[in-house]
């Protein structure tokens, strides 16, 4: 992170307070904190049921210094739709807040890619001016590490365990940013809190978008991934450097890499730190490598960069 961004983040003040109950080494909660700083205080957040909701809001306490609402698991994009519509109608009629308020919906990968996909698709299609943030920690961590549709191929979870006849999860990760982009919304991006400046910049862009924006945030979960808690940020960097989680944005339909990796590191550099991949044979690792390389090439093509 450059000095200027760091300074700005420091000055921004905290909108998500210390004292939350997230696990040691949780990178997701760090992303929440950074995003709140980038959003600023004129923000209203609707939060799906999940880790970030549970760690931040046991009655009678809260970590939120912005207006925040949690209702259910699968409906957060719909709740945000109502917030946006309510603010819009009341402002127009002279009975509401007479300035721009950023409406944010946030949820984990389960809330976004699985149970809440319909509500999200509906809200994106309707064109509400709001930002949806998916914190992707690649499984249902809050309920105890069950697989979701964004759990990567080969990962062992409590409902896709590796065993004598199983390699762990047998399907590939659902491509949520592409699904969001298929709604032809003005802004879609991937981000990772290991790259704070990039994350903050994307939040600001999303905030300015003239319509729905979707941000897919890679959220390292040492507990669920069975990794050392002190290497969360490093794992995030390795995910980007191996091409497993590329950083890009789609602005008004134009795809752009925001961090192009010239020479991808082998995926094993990333996988080896995590207990959820420990059972993988060299063959399986090779399959993952092939898929990652191929998807990265496709992404470069979409971004107009000739494959190397």
């Amino acid at each position: 992170m450059n000095e200027q961004t760091l300074q700005k983040l420091k000055e921004a003040g905290e909108l998500f307070s210390p004292g939350h109950r997230a696990c040691i080494g949780c990178v997701e909660v760090l992303a929440v904190r950074q995003i709140c700083k980038a959003l600023g205080k004129d923000t209203i957040i609707a939060n799906a049921t999940g880790c970030m909701q549970i760690v931040s809001s046991p009655l009678p306490t809260t970590n939120w210094m912005v207006p925040w609402i949690h209702t259910l698991f699968e409906n957060t994009a719909a709740v945000a739709s109502g917030i946006e519509a309510g603010l819009k109608a009341m402002r127009r009629k002279g009975t509401g807040i007479d300035r721009d308020i950023t409406v944010v919906a946030m949820g984990g990968d389960g809330a976004t890619a699985d149970i809440g996909l319909q509500a999200l698709s509906g809200a994106l299609e309707r064109g509400h001016k709001f930002l949806y943030v998916c914190f992707d920690n690649e499984a249902y961590m809050n309920t105890g590490i069950q697989r979701s549709s964004t759990t990567p191929f080969g990962a062992s979870t409590t409902t896709s365990p590796s065993g004598k006849t199983s390699i762990g999860k047998v399907t590939w990760k659902k491509d949520m940013p592409a699904i969001a982009a298929a709604h032809n919304i003005p802004y879609v991006a991937t981000a990772c809190p290991s790259y704070s400046a990039d994350l903050v910049k994307k939040v600001k862009k999303a905030q300015q978008a003239d319509g729905p924006a979707y941000l897919h945030v890679f959220s390292v979960c040492p507990t669920g991934w069975r990794a050392k808690p002190e290497i969360g940020l490093e794992l995030g960097r390795l995910a980007v450097e191996t091409g497993i989680f590329p950083l890009y944005e789609i602005e008004n339909g134009r795809w752009k890499m925001t961090k192009t990796v010239q020479h991808l590191k082998p995926v094993q550099e990333y996988l080896k730190h995590q207990g959820r991949f420990r059972h993988l044979t060299p063959d399986m690792v090779a399959r993952i490598q092939d898929m990652v390389t191929s998807r990265y090439q496709t992404l470069l093509q979409k971004c107009g960069i000739a494959p190397s």
Binding site: I44, N75, V79, G82, G86, A89, M90
Partner: peptide, 12 residues
């Protein structure tokens, strides 16, 4: 009804 929740929560 979820959208109604959000809308009512901002006072509309």
């Amino acid at each position: 009804l979820s959208a109604c929740l959000g809308s009512a929560a901002v006072g509309a």
